[in-house]
């Protein structure tokens, strides 16, 4: 049997090689682009954060020792009466997000998760929290308190 010329063999295998490259590239790119869209789909659409004024009861509802912890729809809030003024703080611990508790005996806010302790002004007394409690703007209208907060972020899209 005649041996094919070595140049023909080389050309043949080069043709095969190019065909393989085209096959591989086309398939990988095609399936890859689909996979990319699928991953895009999984990445959530973050809704714009809105500031909302949330009603928070009346000043008279804050007890004599000066602190009331309320569960507002937009999050837990600490309401405090000091020198005839009402202050509001977010009750979300700045460490890892648990809700702090009020300990009237020590006049401290304590976070049950990692024992972060805050004073009446929201400053960190001890424990892991990196920042003081977030101060929130409070307004009084027609005898009703309103706290300015970010809308809840858990909404769908």
């Amino acid at each position: 049997m005649e041996e094919p010329a070595s140049s023909e063999v080389a050309a043949g295998s080069r043709r095969d090689f190019i065909a393989n490259i085209v096959l591989g590239t086309g398939t990988v790119l095609g399936v890859g682009s689909l996979a990319y869209r699928f991953l895009e789909y999984l990445y959530p659409v973050i809704p714009a954060i809105r500031l909302v004024e949330v009603p928070a009861g009346k000043p008279e509802d804050i007890p004599a020792d000066g602190v009331r912890l309320v569960q507002l729809p937009a999050g837990p809030v600490i309401l405090e009466k000091a020198d005839n003024e009402v202050h509001a703080f977010s009750a979300v611990c700045t460490h890892l997000g648990c809700t702090v508790q009020w300990h009237p005996e020590d006049k401290r806010f304590v976070c049950p998760c990692h024992q972060g302790i805050y004073d009446l002004k929201g400053n960190v007394v001890s424990g892991p929290p990196p920042r003081p409690l977030e101060k929130l703007q409070v307004t009084l209208r027609d005898g009703q308190l309103f706290v300015l907060m970010n809308s809840p972020k858990g909404e769908q899209a």
Binding site: F38, Y41, V45
Partner: peptide, 9 residues
């Protein structure tokens, strides 16, 4: 209507 590429999937 809202999820990225949701209509596509």
């Amino acid at each position: 209507f809202k999820v990225r590429m949701g209509w596509f999937i």
